[in-house]
Amino acid sequence: MNMVKYLRTVMKDKERKPIYQILKEAIHCVLIEKELPYYYFTSLLYKKGAADYRNYIGHKKVCNIIIHYFYPNGRNDNLENKLTFSEILLSNDVHTPKIIAHSTGKTIRFNEEEIVLTNDSQLKELLIKLVNASQSRSIFVKPVDGEAGKHTFKFDRGPISLFKLTELYRLLDKESFIFQETVIQHHKINEIYPNSLNTLRIHTFLDKKTNNVEIVSALMRFGSRGNVMDNASAGGIFIPLRTDNWSLIKKANAFLSSGGKSYTKHPSTNYIFDGTTLPHPEQITHILTQAARLFENEFIGWDLALTETGPIIIEANDNPHLIMAQMACGGFKNHSRYKEIFAKYI
């Protein structure tokens, strides 16, 4: 979305501040951050009741953090490669979804056997086998090194969508995929929104000197309006989390590119967010402490789901979405730990 489309969305927003105030604050952002004030709009700081815009960093500083703090030596394949990541967690008894099969080109490895696909009919037969082999009778198919929910497919028992089938078959030549058991989430999370796996994004910091793991901030993502993905970049919404009692705080937001709306209750189920406490609070802290010590990165963004029996780690990110993290915590400059962790860059 370009600036013109952003501004159109802002102008139509019934929750926006008066125009003169938006202009004044946007100009001040230019002076503070020495860049065009895109972040003022993408962080929804133009809305009434928004956090203090002066506590936010701009996109240039976000990029500096990514380049110089997250990636000084390149990306960490142990985190980014979902096959490798899963093997590390499972070998250390950390709960993560079972990978039933994985692909390299049109060769699928399943049950110690390599199956070479020559047409999409064979893929359809294989998908039916994989669904039946899953305890949840449902599978998620996603790129080994993908992100933001791109090129992700869900297959359940019953008719297989011809569009999804042909699209996946086409993509097999371009990307490697994992075929993973679908996680069945806790009934309490289903009450909020049942159509997607709604995940927590939790940011941890590992002190290399003491080996202490600290939870810095957290938020929770939800799918919306029938969507099976909870990614905010795919139309989902997200809401800040208190980490002392693992409860939802006030209201959720959609990205500006998805309309920038705010919600005190879920738009599909009318479930009221504020104050809702999550199940398994003590186990959340335990599993993250255990997992964070397995990787060399100081700062990691974890995607974690909640099941009836406890939390399960879905993925980890060595470059978690800092715009979303900053929105959820009210600005890095106003957060005691982010001010210390990112001190060189903000």
Results as ranks from 00 to 15, higher is better:
K333A: 14
F295G: 14
M3W: 15
K17A: 00
L248C: 15
E147Q: 11
K188H: 02
G158K: 01
I128L: 10
T204H: 08
L44A: 12
T210R: 13
I300A: 15
I323K: 05
L23W: 06
V228P: 05
K251R: 15
W246G: 07
Q21R: 05
K333H: 08
L23T: 08
S121I: 08
G260M: 12
N78E: 14
V213T: 09
E25K: 01
K150M: 08
N73H: 14
K250D: 13
L168H: 00
F179E: 05
L172G: 03
L45A: 04
F70G: 10
S224C: 05
N92S: 08
Y46D: 02
T264R: 06
H28A: 12
I178V: 03
A133M: 01
S196F: 04
E181L: 00
I341S: 11
L306I: 09
K261V: 00
I22Q: 05
C63Q: 13
L83V: 05
E308R: 15
I287P: 00
I272K: 14
T276Q: 05
K17G: 09
D52T: 09
S247A: 14
T276R: 05
N198H: 01
G49D: 04
K106V: 00
S103W: 01
I19F: 14
E296S: 15
G74M: 03
I312F: 13
N253I: 04
H266T: 10
I215A: 04
V131A: 08
D274M: 01
V94F: 08
K333Y: 08
T307I: 04
K106G: 00
Q180L: 01
D52A: 12
P240R: 07
S268W: 08
G74A: 06
H59G: 09
A232Q: 14
K142A: 05
I178F: 00
Y345H: 14
S224Y: 06
I66T: 08
I32D: 04
H203L: 11
R75G: 09
I65G: 04
K142D: 02
G223L: 01
L130H: 06
P72K: 09
K344N: 07
P240Y: 05
F41T: 07
S161D: 14
I57W: 12
F205M: 01
N211W: 01
E87N: 11
L248E: 10
S262C: 11
I346N: 09
S268K: 05
K209G: 02
E125F: 03
